[in-house]
Design a protein around this nucleic acid. Structure first.
Length: 439
RNA sequence: GUGGGUAUAGCUUAGCUGGUUAAAGCGCCAGUUUGUGGCACUGGAGACCGUCGGUUCGAAUCCGUCUACCCACCCCA
């Protein structure tokens, strides 16, 4: 095709035929979050680049090579958000929301941007549903957040998701662990794959996540973070596990869950599906106790998660999860002739004011074509409006599913005096007919 | 950024080792039926065979380039 207008690499359209699926997922997530006491927050798509460098961490891959960064006309360095937490935290700090009752509980549905090579479950523009619970140091908050993530996935009908949790400790105990890990791997450096040799310098914890069998063998006897947690972090993690046990939510402790964003501390977790390819993490999150302070705010231990909406949708389609049917139009009016067409438009408008989805011909098509159209778009009922109907004030309402037809009598003057208050009777008439016909 | 696969109508595809008007199904439009969709039949529109270049008398078909898509690494949701 010779179209100039093609979507940018790594972006995707949501077409009308699929929009209801997105609406369903977004609403299910928002409703669940609301039941946990979260309210929506909306922040800008772009922020100062510095915000992400500070929060996500300037040594991370996200910041180093994946951000959409540009200078605006005023010379400011601007970045399209690569994730949702930084903006939400910035907003809470900027507006002093932490002066209200803590914790601040907010959720968001947003688009995010990362310059990566697209593949299954990974786009350059993607969408996240996320929650942030700001100012909540207790492990109860960790458990609740995980429970919320689970509730959303469950309500969407998603099955076979594994919950993996870990604790990466506070900066103090993590530093000790990193040293131990580094010296362990340094002794076995020759056995590691090439990428892991790099990781040894940049982020030794990532080696634990390597898929190469060689590295996995080396990792087998590597020191485990959980053995290096300080008393507080250890107790915190134990309580989180106990709370999950009590709630009956099963999980596996996986020391390999190491998040790639610098702000994470203590509890980290992922909900993982094995059914949508290599990018199986459908929801990921954890605690970020140091973030508020890092951004110049007060000490506000916080946590949250983000769900990848495209991935959620993929899993759901893969598992044939039920989506509610999109609402079809109630009535298609097929006018024949100019007079009827004018009346059809008026009838439609009044029906719309009554809350019906009513449409009519816009293309001057013949009756047959109109009926075909009505059938194709899934209209529940159709109504032919021609000279006979206009004269006799009687039309036949047709149930498109059963083919059954029933007469609808228009009270005097309705067709010609559409603004007359008698019109109400017409709609009562139509309304009743629609109700009787339904089912 | 690295590697592998793919690229023919709106969609799904056929087109064998190069040979002249590029094919089918679905979909779309119209007619058979100036008053009722789904079925059937008939007809129609719709493709410079992803791009640029090369080999050849001749390229959708062979070679190279670029681009896009898919998959994996990496990274993450």
């Amino acid at each position: 095709m010779d179209l100039q207008a093609v979507a940018v690499k790594g972006t995707q359209d949501v077409l009308p035929a699929n929009a209801h699926k997105w609406q369903y997922i977004e609403k299910t997530a928002a409703d669940a979050a609301a039941r946990f006491g979260f309210r929506e927050i909306r922040t800008p798509v772009f922020e100062k680049t510095e915000l992400f460098e500070r929060s996500v961490g300037d040594t991370t891959d996200v910041v180093q090579k994946e951000m959409y960064t540009f200078n605006d006309k005023g010379g400011r360095s601007i970045t399209l958000r690569p994730e949702g937490t930084a903006g939400a935290m910035r907003s809470v700090l900027e507006h002093g929301l932490f002066n209200d009752a803590l914790p601040v509980k907010a959720f968001y549905t947003t688009s995010c941007y990362r310059y990566e090579k697209p593949q299954a479950g990974r786009l350059r523009e993607f969408h996240q549903f996320g929650v942030e619970c700001i100012g909540a140091p207790s492990p109860v908050a960790d458990a609740e957040i995980i429970l919320l993530g689970n509730a959303i996935l469950t309500e969407l009908g998603i099955k076979d998701i594994s919950l993996q949790i870990n604790s990466i400790g506070c900066p103090t105990c993590r530093a000790a662990y990193k040293n131990a890990l580094k010296s362990y791997f340094e002794d076995r450096k020759d056995e590691l794959c090439d990428t892991c040799k790099d990781r040894l310098e940049r982020n030794p914890m990532r080696i634990l996540d390597c898929k190469s069998p060689v590295c996995q063998a080396v990792c087998k006897d590597a020191p485990v973070i959980l053995d290096y947690l300080c008393d507080e972090c250890s107790a915190h993690f134990e309580t989180v596990k106990t709370l999950l046990d009590t709630a009956g939510l099963s999980y596996t402790v996986n020391p390999g869950i190491v998040r790639g964003l610098d702000y994470y501390t203590k509890t980290v977790f992922e909900f993982i599906s094995s059914q949508i390819g290599a990018q199986g993490t459908v929801c990921g999150g954890g605690r970020y106790d140091g973030l508020a302070k890092e951004l110049g705010g007060p000490d506000l231990p916080s946590l949250g998660f983000a769900m990848g909406l495209e991935r959620i949708l993929m899993v759901m389609e893969n598992q044939n999860c039920p989506f509610p049917d999109p609402e079809p139009v109630d009535l298609y009016i097929a006018p024949m002739g100019d007079a009827a067409q004018a009346q059809a438009v008026l009838l439609c408008n009044t029906l719309r004011q009554e809350g019906f989805k009513a449409i009519t011909d816009l293309n001057n098509r013949g009756l047959k074509a109109q009926m075909k159209y009505a059938g194709k778009i899934g209209a529940k009922f159709s109504l032919v409006l021609g000279d006979n109907e206009l004269n006799e004030k009687i039309a036949r309402l047709k149930n498109m599913k059963t083919g059954e037809q029933r007469e609808v009598v228009f009270p005097d003057g309705v067709i010609t005096a559409i603004y007359d208050e008698n019109i109400q009777n017409t709609f009562q008439n139509l309304n009743e007919s629609l109700e009787k016909f339904n089912g």
